[in-house]
Amino acid sequence: MPVLAPVVTTLSDRFHYAPPAAAQQARRILVKPNLGYPVGPPATVSLAVLKEVLRGLRESSPSAEILIVEGVCSNVAFDTIMAKVGVPQLLSAGMQLLNADELELAEYSNRSPSPVRFTTMWAPKLLQEVDCCLSVSALKRTQLKGAPLISASLKNLYGLFPRAKYKARSANSRGQLHRPSVPLVLQDVYSTLGHYFAGGVVDCTEKFVSRDWQPDRGNGISIGQVIYGDDLLTVDRTACLVGQEDIPDYITALESQRRS
């Protein structure tokens, strides 16, 4: 059985975010939304869900500095994408929108006893300088090498890794994080950055489904739910069940590793 942690499933139109304990009266909170493409939901998280997360954080921590950090995966500029999807209109006093590719970096150790590929990974130093990190993602299914790839709160962390260090053939993406495969590298991502995240939110208002590998071109299937909790793996597992998707191998492997 997987490690159990509190998880909430609620109707999208009744979503009222209750932040994890780490966000209560925090001084600095980092929010990583899934907004890396110049398109709206369900390819990216809906503004309604992100707005409710920010409201809940502000209510629980009235004086906190809330840092919204994303790294885009497109040839479109960060500022252009954020304006197109409407993020600036959500910002109020004490909130900042930051480009992950422009932040100071730190080298993070992989805590896994058996790293898949990366024994260390580079990501913003800011993760170490806040009281609480949260992943706010969409639920997405793409196809890679003929197999489905489920993206939710854990896969959302890909946007934190600098393209300058992890690019391959395209400077716009993080091709190095696709080798030997995304499901395998996700195990390194979790064992490197996962422990910094006190919670995750998965927007399942619509499930995004792509016919191929493209994470910004596909169709939406109505589900009408939002999943949130204080453990990324449990949140993602629940989102898969709600979205009628098979539990990804990377989640099963990480749960097994965590129990050992």
Rank of each mutant, 00 (worst) to 15 (best):
K145T: 04
N110W: 07
A23W: 01
G40I: 05
F197H: 04
T80K: 13
T80P: 00
L97A: 09
E104Y: 04
N99I: 03
V226L: 05
Y17G: 09
V226E: 03
C133K: 03
L177M: 14
A18I: 13
T10C: 13
D236C: 03
W122P: 00
S92M: 02
K167M: 13
D236T: 07
L157V: 12
S260L: 10
G224I: 02
Y166K: 09
L54T: 08
P88E: 09
L126S: 11
G199M: 04
R237A: 11
V182S: 10
Q257F: 06
L134G: 09
W122L: 12
A100D: 05
P248A: 07
H16A: 14
V136P: 02
K167I: 00
D236L: 03
S222Q: 10
A253L: 04
I150A: 08
A168P: 00
T44S: 14
R163I: 03
M1A: 14
E107H: 07
W213Y: 15
S92D: 08
R259Q: 14
Q24E: 09
V39C: 13
R58N: 03
A43Y: 06
C204W: 00
Y17L: 09
I150F: 12
S260T: 11
L67I: 02
S191H: 15
R174F: 06
V45Q: 01
V31L: 06
E206I: 10
R141A: 11
P180T: 11
R217K: 15
E65G: 05
A21G: 02
L57W: 04
S63N: 13
P88C: 11
T252W: 00
H178E: 15
V202H: 05
R28V: 01
G243F: 01
A152Q: 05
R211S: 15
E52N: 13
P113W: 05
G71S: 09
C132E: 03
L232N: 02
Q214F: 04
V7H: 02
V201F: 05
M82I: 12
K155P: 06
E245H: 07
G40F: 10
K165H: 12
